[in-house]
């Protein structure tokens, strides 16, 4: 049995931490894209479409992320696809993120006073033009703080990908622990890794929120 120095542990965690960052970025970018489409469809769409999107949001918010990962992993196999942990984790986290962002953003669009809508429609702008030039720029200001805040949940969510065998920070921690058996040190370091990624984002989100409310919006 080989001895692990503290540097060996830290180095391996840092290497695996890259995949936590990459998976977070994929989930956030993919989730933002899908979430944006859903938000726009929900704001303008027909009643059945709005109802379906609401069901989608409720399904992802009302079930454990761990189950969503298992379903993506095993569900794809039932449909005949041989998916890797990479694909399953990316798909599940993207859909999870899109549902939450859709909910956050809907709130932001609705927070823009309805007079703004009426005024832009009266001025002859159609739905897309009103959205693009009047509503979205205002909603965007409101949306930034909670969106940054939610990115922390996405990073923490990637830790669950370890359960389906995706080697990121948490999985690397359990693997290192099996070899080196220093659970206290290893999991403290794993936690520190997440803290270093998440804490600045949390602080930034709080700062943005203070700035927004300080500016007298709402």
């Amino acid at each position: 049995m080989t001895d692990f120095t503290l540097w060996d542990i830290v180095r391996n965690l840092l290497l695996a931490g890259r995949w936590t960052v990459v998976l977070s970025l994929i989930a956030f970018a993919g989730g933002a894209l899908v979430g944006l489409v859903l938000t726009l469809a929900r704001m303008g769409g027909l009643k059945p479409i709005r109802w379906l999107i609401r069901l989608y949001v409720d399904l992802f918010q009302g079930t454990p992320l761990l189950m969503q990962l298992f379903l993506a992993y095993f569900g794809a196999a039932v449909l005949g696809f041989d998916v890797s942990a990479w694909t399953a984790a990316s798909v599940a986290l993207t859909l999870f993120t899109s549902a939450f962002l859709c909910d956050i953003w809907r709130g932001c669009v609705e927070a823009v006073p309805s007079g703004q809508w009426q005024a832009s429609r009266v001025l002859g702008l159609n739905y897309l033009q009103s959205m693009r030039h009047v509503i979205l720029p205002q909603a965007l200001r409101l949306a930034v703080p909670p969106t940054v805040g939610f990115s922390v949940q996405v990073i923490k969510g990637t830790a669950l990908a370890s359960v389906i065998g995706f080697v990121e920070l948490t999985k690397a921690g359990t693997m290192l622990n099996n070899a080196a058996f220093a659970p206290f040190t290893i999991f403290a370091l794993v936690a520190l890794g997440y803290f270093i990624l998440c804490y600045p984002l949390s602080r930034y989100a709080r700062h943005l929120e203070k700035k927004l409310y300080g500016a007298g919006i709402r």
Binding site: V152, K156, G157, A159, L160, S162, V163, T170, G173, T174, N177, F181, A182, P183, F184, F187, A188, V190, A191, Y194, F195, C198, Y199, S202
Partner: peptide, 23 residues
């Protein structure tokens, strides 16, 4: 409060379950 809010629950769980017996 900040440590709990900025680390994943699964890591908190592993830290307690594997870490405390080691101490």
């Amino acid at each position: 409060v900040e440590v709990i809010r900025n680390t994943p629950f699964i890591v908190q769980l592993f830290f307690l379950f594997f870490g405390l017996p080691a101490l």
